[in-house]
Amino acid sequence: MNIFRLSGDLLHLASIFILIARLHQTKSCAGISLKTQYLYLLVFATRYLDLFLGFVSVYNTLMKIFFLASSGYIVYLMYSPLKASYDKSLDSFRVEYIIAFAAVVALAFPHKYSVVEVLWSFSIYLESLAIIPQLFQMTRTGEADNITSHYVFALGGYRALYMLNWFYRYYTEDNYVDYISWIAGIVQTALYGDFFYIYITRVLKGKSFKLP
């Protein structure tokens, strides 16, 4: 554990609390992509299967359980109590392409050919692309309420902090490199490029998130 990874994890945790608070406060899921939330549930379900296979630390186990439970809870909220506020026509990105792409890359370049390793690679690649339906919806409508933009910022910032963590690990742990995490992490952070720019130039200056 190092300060970059811990900060990244805490920012990831914060992003989920922000989203749940947003759903509870407004009693609406308008502006939130159900497809992105469904993809995160799939990401955690395929990656954290290893909960049953090995033990890393109490911290690691508790965080995994939290991510699984919270993503399930968010999908439940959007499917059931908040369903009336969900506008399917705005959440129109074809998510099949993302799942198929992540599956092909995971099958082509896993660390090892085993069910658990291929699913792990799939979850890493899928996570890197899972924000696309959310960003697509924000691009389509051209705006987002502030708390939604804070949510997306925290979610994007978390993986950027992980990149600092991988640099740190490279130097402190005998050139430790996980190339799958690196490639997916770079793609994931890069996808947020335009978003970060608008967030910093508008939302942090007290204006609302609006595309020019």
Partner: peptide, 10 residues
Amino acid sequence: SAQPAEHDEL
């Protein structure tokens, strides 16, 4: 270079 033996990150 060291290869990741296990996935210890989240």
